[in-house]
Simulated scan of single mutants.
Amino acid sequence: MSTKPILHRDDPDAEPLVGNVKVTRDDWLNVAMDVLISDGVEQVKVLNLAERMAVSRSSFYWYFKSRQELLDALLARWQATNTAALIAQAETPADTITAAVCNVHRCVVNSGLFDTALDFAVRDWARRSGKVRRMLDQSDAHRLEALQAMFMRYGYEEVEAVTRARVLYYMQIGYDLAQLNEPVKFRLKLLPYYLLVFTGVEARAEEIEEFSAYARRFWEGEAT
């Protein structure tokens, strides 16, 4: 879930801003990201963001030449977080394919690696913009290529690797979109069977235990 961003001026650990500056470039980006996720790209407007931060909209132009530059920065951040994180997790060394899939699934439970709400917001945005649609298609292709390469590292033939990569990737997108709100215990109970379906291989007990412990740290507070 996306949380309301803390402005630099409200962060007790942040260095004081110099002069009359009340917000930073990251503040504009963070609030814009929050609006994109909660209300859609149509509401990512300079005046709207300025009102949320209680600043003059003229300060926006200290950091961005135009609204379009802000939108481009949002897309760049999405690419640098979600897409880069999923690819990095797919490329993380692991002893077995089941452990490798668990590495990828860390993106599912850790929004610091992969922000699902942001991904859905960009997919919604892509329905209205050909440019964003092309970027999304390229991003999906890069993610799938990384997952395919992951399977091939463990000896899967190319066609099977492509198929398993697509099953793993698109199943997770649909799973998140369904918002099942499953109890943690039940979801983790299914983990060994999901891994078997994704890989055709039974996962080691220690792999299940390690991922389950990782997931619980991020799902803490959910009903068990």
Rank of each mutant, 00 (worst) to 15 (best):
D10L: 00
L17V: 04
V18A: 08
K22E: 05
V23T: 01
D27E: 11
W28M: 14
E42N: 08
L49V: 02
L49M: 09
A50S: 13
A50K: 07
A50F: 06
M53R: 00
S56I: 08
S58H: 15
F60C: 09
F60Y: 13
K65Q: 14
S66V: 05
Q68H: 04
Q68K: 06
E69Y: 09
A73P: 00
L75Q: 10
A76Q: 09
T83Y: 11
L86A: 13
E91T: 05
P93F: 00
A100Q: 03
V104R: 06
V104L: 09
N110I: 14
G112I: 04
D115Y: 11
T116F: 15
A117C: 14
D119E: 13
R123C: 09
D124R: 15
W125E: 09
R128L: 06
R128C: 05
V132F: 13
M135Y: 11
L147S: 03
Q148W: 08
A149E: 11
E157R: 10
E157V: 08
V159P: 00
E160Q: 14
A161G: 02
V162E: 13
T163C: 13
R166Q: 12
Y169F: 08
Y170I: 03
M171R: 00
I173S: 12
D176P: 02
L177F: 15
A178T: 05
A178F: 06
N181F: 05
P183Q: 04
V184N: 04
F186Y: 05
F186P: 01
Y193P: 00
Y193T: 04
L195G: 07
V197E: 09
E202D: 11
E206R: 06
E206T: 09
E209S: 07
A213S: 07
A215L: 05
E220T: 12
T224V: 13
